[in-house]
């Protein structure tokens, strides 16, 4: 019989982590967090909650593992091909009119979406005047994103997505395969800046024409979602775009009345500055 982490114990843990490391997970959705914490607790075979708690408080190395394991880092290239089709057909032609394009991928995990965007920009002749910022709370995944190396086994799926999203070239021309790894072209990585950034506690660091944050807000409680929406609003130029995950919406957010949705995709355009 496996010891179950109770919700009160989870609260204790989250308070510890905030006090000890300054990472605030207290406004994350509890059901998902509890599931991830339980999984880690079982995986690492702790005999009791007390020992788990002690290890986390006194072993910063283990805390890093904790952050990596409890945050969800599942992502893929050109996920939801119709979303990328809309980017290509509707959003990029508008961005093309700017002398310089700044894009922020917030919570980018291992960076697959940043690479997807770079491919789109390259094919529309915009990459040379673009900068793509990829940020995540988790330093390990940012390190992987920076390298641009992904398992070759995923390339078939990515290639299918690429074709469905309106890609016209041979997807394999963007990477070099070596045994089981695929390394993406330097012409793409040259326009990317990866850095850690915590949406809970860190501030705006630039102004963007496009911010993408897909399948991140589902892990936050409403209050935190509102805070993050305000951060995005502050970081977005007037008439800039905000893109969310397939099941996320701006609808209940405090900034909703100043944004207009683009068609059926989860893309909103900022139509008024904050008053």
């Amino acid at each position: 019989m496996i010891t179950a982490i109770r919700i009160e114990e989870l609260d204790i843990l989250l308070n510890d982590l905030f006090t000890r490391y300054g990472y605030d997970f207290t406004e994350y959705s509890k059901a998902s967090l509890q599931r991830r914490v339980q999984r880690l607790f079982t995986l690492d075979k702790f005999p009791s909650f007390a020992e788990f708690r002690h290890r986390l408080q006194h072993d910063p190395q283990y805390f890093r593992r904790f952050v990596e394991e409890i945050t969800v880092n599942v992502t893929e290239m050109l996920r939801d091909p119709s979303f990328y089709r809309t980017l290509r057909s509707t959003i990029l032609p508008v961005l093309a009119t700017y002398p310089f394009i700044r894009i922020w991928h917030a919570g980018c995990a291992t960076g697959e979406e940043v690479y997807s965007m770079a491919i789109l920009l390259k094919e529309t002749g915009l990459l040379h005047k673009s900068l793509l910022y990829g940020t995540d709370i988790n330093p390990q995944v940012i390190e992987r994103a920076r390298k641009g190396i992904f398992p070759v086994s995923q390339m078939q799926k990515f290639s299918e997505n690429y074709i469905q999203s309106g890609g016209i070239h041979d997807f394999s021309s963007y990477y070099t395969a070596n045994y089981h790894l695929a390394k993406f072209d330097n012409s793409l990585t040259g326009k990317m800046i990866f850095s850690t950034h915590n949406l809970v506690s860190d501030f705006s660091f630039n102004e963007f024409q496009l911010i993408l944050c897909r399948n991140v807000l589902i892990y936050f409680e409403r209050g935190l979602q509102s805070k993050v929406f305000k951060l995005f609003d502050y970081s977005l130029e007037n008439f800039g775009y905000l893109a969310l995950g397939a099941k996320e919406s701006l609808r209940f957010s405090p900034i909703a009345d100043r944004y207009r949705q683009i068609g059926k995709e989860k893309i909103w355009r900022k139509v008024h500055e904050a008053g």
Binding site: I7, S29, K30, A31, S32, R35, R36, V72, V74, N215, I218, Y219, G245, A246, K247
Partner: peptide, 21 residues
Amino acid sequence: APADYHVLIEEDQTFSLDYSE
């Protein structure tokens, strides 16, 4: 349940969606 998401339930009897493994 939507395609491609796990459905979780919070203590306050609301739904959460999850895109983990």
